[in-house]
């Protein structure tokens, strides 16, 4: 009985990670994009496009790597579209991002339904994908009781997501290109005046960030075992990612933490009842909490964070000063 209860906790922790790392991809990608001064509201659509193409191509080539690369490339292509419109053509970022979401979701269903009409690839038919997505236990760490299996035995994309987040933190804060990127997001005029190529920097990082989002989408598709239905695989995660960027204060490491916080609520929604059953005395009340509260919490928390940071003004805030503003050098 005791073992079962601990098992519930382990599963709970495991689920926090498994189901929410896609959020981390979306968030880290969006941080990279926003650090260049571009507010991209198209995360949902970009992840959807990465997901559908990554999944289909990955399955047909029976290669997880090809799937990841395809998802990245499709995400980056969407980023390229966003960059062309907002950086070169000076279009409004909000509207372009929203349209990218509509467009991306449209493409997701269009391509998905078209493939489904011919032959839908079923994930379990493709050994490399199925095996590639299996959990890999980290020797040693995964032996720790209760949390070991929960935290240190996961599929490759979980590890990749964490690695990307750490790399991006290092890149943004500890490298010269990262410094230049932040300069562009803070004050493109001064970046320009010291010879930083503002356009190139923006293009590059919008594409990079959107590519990362694309991988997150691919992960979501695999997580749903590739079963294609009327609901999109991304299911609002793109929007939570936009919120999480604010919660994480534009810091990829904080994004890992934020993913766990948001993921905690998200997992309570799914497995709160099993916790309530396992610990009826202490956690029995969980069964009474409406699931929608868990779903709304990320947005409520982020709204509070938004208000608090605006009251406290900019001290310590990671919000890029030029976020959402297009740069035109000859503006007087």
């Amino acid at each position: 009985m005791e073992m079962d209860k601990l098992g519930v906790i382990t599963t709970f922790i495991h689920n926090i990670v498994v189901y929410n790392i896609p959020l981390l991809y979306g968030t880290v990608g969006e941080i990279v994009v926003e650090k260049s001064g571009s507010l991209n509201l198209g995360v949902e659509g970009i992840m959807a496009v990465g997901a559908i193409f990554g999944y289909i191509v990955g399955c047909y080539t029976n290669s997880m790597l090809v799937g990841i690369l395809t998802a990245f490339a499709m995400g980056a292509l969407m980023g390229l579209l966003f960059a062309a419109l907002t950086v070169s053509l000076q279009a409004n970022q909000n509207i372009t991002g929203l349209t990218l979401t509509t467009f991306g979701l449209g493409m997701y269903f269009f391509v998905g339904n078209a493939i489904k009409a011919v032959r839908w690839p079923i994930m379990s038919d493709y050994s490399s994908i199925k095996n590639g997505f299996a959990d890999i236990a980290i020797p040693g760490l995964s032996q720790i009781p209760v949390v070991g299996k929960g935290l240190f035995s996961h599929n490759i994309l979980v590890y990749l997501g964490i690695v990307i987040a750490l790399c991006m933190w290092y890149y943004l804060n500890r490298t010269t290109p990262g410094l230049r990127l932040r300069a562009v997001g803070e004050n493109p005029g001064s970046a320009d005046s010291v010879g930083i190529n503002v356009k190139r920097t923006k293009y590059l990082h919008i594409c990079l960030g959107c590519g990362i989002m694309g991988i997150g989408g691919y992960y979501m598709g695999l997580n749903m075992s590739g079963s294609f239905s009327s609901a999109c695989w991304i299911n609002g995660y793109g929007w939570i990612a936009v919120a999480l960027v604010i919660f994480a204060n534009w810091n990829p490491i904080m994004a890992i933490l934020g993913t766990f916080v948001f993921g905690f609520f998200n997992t309570l929604r799914v497995s709160g009842s099993s916790l309530a059953v396992a610990f009826p005395e202490t956690l029995g009340w969980l069964a009474a909490v409406p699931t929608q509260l868990y779903q709304a919490l990320p947005f409520i928390i982020t709204a509070i964070v938004l208000v608090v940071t605006s009251v406290r003004k900019r001290e310590g805030s990671g919000l890029p000063a030029a976020l959402g503003l297009n740069y035109f050098r000859e503006e007087r």
């Binding site: 300069a183 803070e186 004050n187 005029g189 001064s190 900019r314 000063a321």
Partner: peptide
């Protein structure tokens, strides 16, 4: 001034080096 407010003095110089 063409300076990035949130950067240190050194980083303002370093970014264009």
């Amino acid at each position: 001034f063409k300076l990035v407010d949130v950067f240190s003095a050194a980083d303002n110089i370093w970014m264009g080096r």
